[in-house]
Design a protein around this nucleic acid. Structure first.
Length: 488
RNA sequence: GGCCCCGUCGUCUAGCGGCCUAGGACUCUGGCUUCUCAAGUCAGCUACGAGGGUUCGAAUCCCUUCGGGGCUACCA
């Protein structure tokens, strides 16, 4: 439409309707909103669209706040932090919408519609049969006062419906270019329900104007509702030069090529958090869905994202969510973690799994053990499984590994190992390795792979474990020897 | 059905008329390394949906077609 005033500071909003846990698609939108605000030095507004009182719950609203906070997507205006354009919950702004609806009515931009749900459904059905574009037929556009009186006498309660003028709406989408909708395909739409509550179409437009939003970055599903939104701006008397700019983001799809939803794979961000994915990995991966830095780099920090992110580099085609790549990025991020941070992330997983209780000795052991598993995990959720052998009270060898050390040669390995290790002065992994290599590899001529495998199973209980000698050092001489003897 | 959006390796993408016998990453396959698993490293597989134009030249521009998706609510 018109060029936007370049001197005004960027204001973008993320405005979810919390009818469930925030999911991957929502968060990708939030991330782009946030990144764009930070990139431009603008303002990031967080608004809750809870006009659908049937489906939105306080729990979901709180969960949405928690999720954004956990991801590090901090907002400048919104719930908890407030701001000059609040309140930021639409349920607290009902009087504002009512005022505007009344104004539209008095201006003739909107009118009362008395059609019942059944009547409307009948019209739509007929339209479908006749192969005509379905939509409101304008029945109540020009009612006489007698007709109105008759409807009211029947006890009908009207909705407020916006009048869509003849013609068309053209606007420039920052991602898709110029888009035009003929108004004959954009029927008159409802602004206010019969019970007086506002609909999304009214609330979203009023709030974006009142909150001085300059850029609307949102899902592609809202593309076709944009003409209605512009119609409300017009009725509000807003100068087209002051309309926000729109950018409709491509979808994030599930494996079956349908828009990602609750029924289509793990979508809730809470699930990924509990599985041990880092916020930065989730954001990094999501940023790559529909956007790229332009060069071959893919591992970006949050800071780099805010520096590099532009709407121009967002492309228009949908992307399929691939957990494999998320895992790869998560593994990279975990490996890059300084020990202290890795420890901080790891602790909740260990305590929640019951691997440790949290004593000082346990914590010291965890800190010593983390370096040897840091490069072998993809999610934090794998930590308890790998370190369990260090803390477990009633140690036992896993069923599938037990049978691998029942042969005579394995027994020989264990016997010799106990003999040599018992006299070891310094229980350090270098010394342990040296003694065992001499005894088992050089003197007995065994294959390292075979000899150490038997010991690994005896000591850690599994044929898959962190490096053997480091594991033995951490476990301590007493327990290590005890377990090897028990395995014999 | 109508309207709108979209279409490069299996997946995410680079590409914006010649640098493309199409590059990177993930996945997968094989090798190296190796005390297992990882990590690291090397190599390989595989793509411009199709058909017409425009042009000296097209993944890049235009048209058609096919395919996918969204919307079509007193949901958002």
């Amino acid at each position: 439409m018109a060029a936007h005033n370049p001197t005004s500071a960027v204001r973008v909003r993320f405005a979810p309707s919390p009818t469930g846990e925030l999911h991957v698609g929502n968060i990708r939108t939030a991330l782009f909103d946030w990144a764009y605000a930070r990139h431009t030095g603008g303002t990031f507004i967080f608004r809750i669209e809870d006009t659908d009182t049937e489906r939105v719950t306080p729990e979901y609203i709180q969960a949405a706040l928690n999720t954004l906070t956990w991801l590090g997507l901090d907002w400048d205006e919104g719930p908890e932090v407030g701001g000059p354009n609040g309140p930021y919950l639409q349920s607290e702004r009902l009087h504002i919408y009512a005022e505007w609806a009344a104004k539209f009515l008095s201006q003739g931009d909107a009118y009362h519609c008395y059609c019942s749900a059944e009547e409307l459904e009948k019209v739509r059905e007929d339209q479908r049969k006749a192969n005509v574009a379905p939509g409101y037929n304008g029945h109540c556009r020009e009612l006489s006062s007698d007709q109105v009186a008759a409807y009211l006498a029947q006890g009908r309660k009207p909705v407020v419906r916006m009048r869509m003028p003849d013609g068309s709406t053209t606007f420039t989408d920052l991602i898709r270019g110029e888009v035009t909708f003929e108004h004959k395909f954009v029927p008159d739409f409802v602004l206010v329900r019969a019970d007086g509550s506002p609909l999304y179409t009214l609330a979203v437009a009023v709030d974006d104007i009142l909150m001085k939003v300059t850029h609307v970055l949102r899902g592609e599903d809202l593309l076709s509702s944009t003409p209605r939104q512009l119609r409300v701006y017009d009725a509000m008397g807003v100068n087209p030069n002051d309309y926000p700019l729109f950018a409709h983001l491509p979808f994030v799809m599930g494996q079956d090529n349908a828009k990602l939803s609750k029924r289509n794979g793990e979508t809730s961000i809470a699930w990924y958090r509990d599985a041990g994915f880092l916020p930065e990995a989730i954001c990094n991966y999501l940023a790559l869905l529909g956007w790229s830095p332009g060069d071959d780099r893919e591992n970006v920090t949050m800071k780099e994202l805010t520096e590099l992110f532009t709407v121009e580099r967002v492309h228009s085609s949908p992307a399929k969510f691939d957990i494999k790549k998320l895992e790869a990025i998560n593994g990279d991020k975990i490996r890059a973690l300084p020990l202290e941070e890795f420890f901080t992330w790891a602790m909740p997983f260990l305590t929640r799994a019951g691997t440790i209780q949290g004593s000082d000795t346990e914590i010291a052991l965890v800190k010593a053990a983390l370096p040897i598993i840091q490069e072998r995990i993809v999610t934090l959720g794998e930590i308890p499984g790998l370190l369990n052998f260090l803390f477990v009270k009633d140690f036992a060898i896993a069923e599938d590994s037990r049978e691998k050390i029942l042969d005579e040669q394995s027994k020989q390995v264990l016997t010799v190992s106990v003999q040599r290790l018992s006299g070891l002065g310094e229980w350090k992994h270098e010394a342990i390795e040296a003694v065992l290599r001499t005894a088992l590899i050089e003197e007995l001529g065994l294959k390292p792979r075979f000899a150490f495998s038997a010991l690994r199973i005896a000591v850690t209980g599994s044929h898959i474990s962190p490096p053997l000698f480091e594991s033995m050092e951490l476990l301590g001489a007493e327990k290590s020897l005890e377990r090897i003897r028990a395995a014999m």
